[in-house]
């Protein structure tokens, strides 16, 4: 066990866990930040996506020891009032079915739009393709990313 200091959603946290513990489980089991979801655990689905600094990262394969002083943002901290343009677009397009994958989709989209504020349709598909939605909400995800991009302009 080792002690790690983490900067998450603008707050400091301390945890005592094994160094190979994925950030996902630290968030969920140790810190009560359960918005970040577990689905595959092997970086195949994107349900566990968080931001490390401004990059979308799969927290299920990121050992806590690798986080260091990097700024971690989870779905809970994406915006203070749940009003990030991506969250607003998701609400407006009514994207979710079961909703389980959507935190990861939103985090992926937010990081993607930060890098590419005005993406083409093809770029959106490229940027979002690695996130699985078992309910098949892909059409609406695409539409919501477009809307969020328009909103931020």
């Amino acid at each position: 066990m080792a002690n790690y200091k983490l900067q998450i959603n603008g707050k400091s946290y301390e945890v005592d866990v094994d160094e190979d513990t994925p950030l996902l489980w630290v968030l969920r089991d140790n810190l009560g930040l359960v918005g970040t979801k577990y689905s595959c655990g092997i970086a195949q689905c994107g349900a566990c996506t968080v931001h490390i600094n401004d990059e979308a990262v799969r927290s299920c394969v990121l050992p806590v020891s690798a986080v260091k002083n990097d700024k971690v943002t989870t779905i809970e901290g994406l915006s203070e009032k749940g009003d990030h343009p991506v969250q607003k677009a998701w609400e407006e397009v009514d994207v979710a079915q079961c909703g389980y994958c959507q935190a990861g989709q939103i985090m992926t989209a937010a990081a993607f739009l930060k890098k590419y504020p005005s993406p083409s349709d093809e770029e959106i598909v490229e940027g979002m393709n690695a996130n699985i939605c078992r309910c098949g909400t892909y059409h609406r995800i695409k539409e919501a990313v477009k809307l969020a991009s328009a909103k931020t302009k």
């Binding site: 930040l33 359960v34 918005g35 970040t36 989870t74 779905i75 809970e76 994406l78 749940g82 969250q87 998701w90 609400e91 009514d94 979710a96 909703g99 959507q102 935190a103 939103i106």
Partner: peptide
């Protein structure tokens, strides 16, 4: 449940 789902509740 949109709001709750999209803010990670």
């Amino acid at each position: 449940d949109n709001k709750a789902m999209f803010t990670g509740q």
